[in-house]
Design a protein around this nucleic acid. Structure first.
Lengths: 398, 398
DNA sequence: CGACTTTGTAAAGGGTCTTGACAAAGGGCG
DNA sequence: CGCCCTTTGTCAAGACCCTTTACAAAGTCG
């Protein structure tokens, strides 16, 4: 029988909810007065005063001078100091663990990283623990907690990594281990989800609708943000689009299947295909040197026909899968990130064209496929943003 | 800047939330005592007594004898009478409007329908109004409201139909019109969403995870239920998968595009393709008579090679799109409904096989593609179920 | 300067859940 | 059967939190 457990409602929850509401209002619209907050939230001035008192005691809100009078007593302006709290966000990559201490506006206060040098399993987890300890020690303000973005499928809310192939983590209790180590609230999320949240929070996109963030690099994965929250799906399985079959050609994929999106649209696929063509055509300007993305990119920008063909051939399958996602989710905003985006407008246009002819025109009209606007820290920042939403009820915004 | 409006929390909301919690507990687990409810919800016996008093006054809960003692005073058992309320659910189809009065368990108490005979636009809306009036008059218990399932994109929560091509509704205020007519709470939802909700509520599937219900008939559309609620997406655009491009063949679609899923996997496509092949092969047993689904189905069941080929050719593209949906949403449960399901296990297996090799093995392992288990009233019942969730906070269950 | 407006706070009030107590109603055992 | 124990359901008092009402403080405007 269908059941959905609902918790009882209690006074404490009213209070917590309203505290969060006030905090969020001040955070998002500062500076503003208690009376402003009351008007914005519908709460009474009395209640707002009471709630603000508590927030001031916690240091999450401060009084910052007075504003101009509008015909009466001048308002006392409130704001949330960016350094009222700090958060630790970490990007777990197969090569490197990179983390940061950030403030409540996502400004990086400290940075630290460690190379894994091939270590995986327990050794990698130990390295992660060491990095977390370093960063929590580096924090100069009370910490909200620790947010980890890692590849793999993750069990929520425990933060147990069910499977992360490159790290050789199988049913590894990353969340529990780190929480026990630091005693702080800890969340572990998929790196695609963290990237998606980073775009939502810092990308200055339209945040009113569902957003799909697709990372196209060595692999291809997506994160989905709906209403400011990451949609993870059952067992964090949402967004696993890299192994959607898109072609009947018999191209083997590392997942065991054939014809996966990754085998034709990823950076790995593009480089491989380019290498094949170069081998078949010794006269190419690309001959002779090892074919890295930098080399291919240079040729692509220099109008090299082979580079052009290879890169632009990789675009349509991606466009088609994006169209399927738009149809499935009814989303408006698609954000592309990852190394492949370096191929720029030409590649993007090829993706767009195929997407446009691959979905219901009525849906595509209002859709937007464009590049992301966050940088290298995206995963760490996104993990911190997710943590902030879950702990403080604040949607971290730039 | 990202904002997500949150309402203030107040005493009334606590009350409403807890009333719903108690009602739901009794509804789902009846018969049980006030003390049982207290244990199940975490509320105190005192509070439960108080809340139950109100529910009894409303007729939503009744005392039904006493249960066995477990060493103390015998408990007074509570339950929700199925006929405490009734709901009107209506299936708006291009051919026919069919509606029903159902009780709180989804049992049909009265049925009524009207053929449209080609009427559309305002005339169709008038017919719908007449049907709603007939059904509300037929109700013998207090009505919760009216739920409408209709094709088209629908604006929420107004219930304005932005576009329903077969009915020639453009920006038609169906919800407002019916609400004004009856004075009852009224919801208008997409028919795919209603079907999906019906499967969730009455299909006896696993309801713990996300469920995707795909209707394959003349057209192809999907509804998504997550956590007992329909996910509509921006502008109800979620589940519009019929016009996802799946083939490079230049098959024109009524949507204006080419190679849409509908052009190869729908019932319309199958019949058309069969007709073409029959025309090219006058010796076929299918020659001579008009090619309806019934005719094709008979041939298919009789192992006719042409029928087999045509039907089974239509399966793989659907399987591939299902795989893309599973990857996007991380869903476990896919339910297939609609006329094409009459082609049975052979067709289903062909769909499954292609889906399996078209998504990440790890995702497909736990996925389940199977047939729906609801009947002709699915849309009307589903619309009623959605209404019940939104009005009473009850997840209608069989 | 005085009337009016706006802000922020204080005291009283009201709704809702919880605590503590108890009567009612049953079983178990001498 | 009678007593004690358990369980149920209810009542009264209390605690929590928002709202109402009132008011002092601090500003503008004429």
């Amino acid at each position: 029988m269908p059941t959905a457990t609902l918790a009882k409602a209690t006074h404490r929850q009213i209070r917590r909810s309203n505290v969060q509401l006030v905090l969020r209002t001040v955070y998002e619209s500062a500076p503003l007065s208690r009376a402003d907050v009351a008007r914005a939230t519908g709460l009474t001035r009395t209640t707002v005063s009471d709630l603000v008192e508590g927030l001031i005691a916690d240091g999450l809100v401060v009084e910052a001078g007075t504003g101009p009078s509008t015909g009466g007593k001048a308002p006392i302006l409130l704001r949330v100091p960016a350094d009222a709290r700090q958060l630790v966000g970490i990007d777990v990559d197969r090569e490197r663990l990179s983390g940061a201490v950030v403030d409540l506006r996502g400004e990086v206060q400290a940075r630290e990283s460690r190379y894994l040098h091939g270590r995986d399993g327990e050794a990698a987890l130990r390295e992660l623990e060491a990095l977390v300890l370093t960063l929590t020690a580096a924090a100069e303000r009370p910490l909200v907690g620790v947010g980890i973005g890692t590849p793999g499928l993750i069990e929520q809310p425990s933060g147990r990594v069910r499977w992360a192939v490159g790290l050789d983590w199988h049913d590894t209790p990353v969340g529990e281990r780190l929480a026990a180590l630091t005693g702080l609230p800890t969340i572990v999320v998929n790196d695609s989800q963290a990237s998606a949240m980073a775009e939502w929070a810092f990308g200055h996109h339209d945040t009113s609708s569902a957003m799909i963030v697709v990372k196209v690099g060595v692999g291809i994965g997506a994160g989905i943000v709906i209403g400011g929250r990451v949609y993870a799906g059952d067992d964090s399985g949402a967004g696993e689009i890299g192994h959607t079959r898109v072609t009947d050609e018999d191209i083997r994929c590392r997942c065991g299947g054939t014809g996966c999106l990754e085998t034709v649209a990823s950076l790995r696929a593009v480089l491989q295909r380019a290498a094949e063509l170069v081998a078949a055509d010794p006269g190419s300007r690309l001959s002779g040197r090892p074919l890295t993305q930098a080399v291919l990119l240079e040729a692509f920008r220099a109008d090299d026909p082979l580079a052009r063909e290879v890169v632009l051939q990789a675009a349509p399958p991606l466009g088609r899968v994006l169209a399927a996602m738009i149809g499935t989710l009814g989303a408006r905003d698609i954000v592309l990130i990852g190394p492949m985006t370096e191929f720029g407008q030409l590649w993007l246009n090829a993706v767009r064209v195929e997407a446009r002819r691959s979905a219901l025109p009525l849906l595509m009209e209002r859709s937007n496929i464009h590049f992301g606007r966050t940088g290298d820290d995206a995963v760490a920042l996104g993990a911190a943003a997710i943590l902030m939403t879950s702990e403080l009820g604040l949607a971290l915004v730039a």
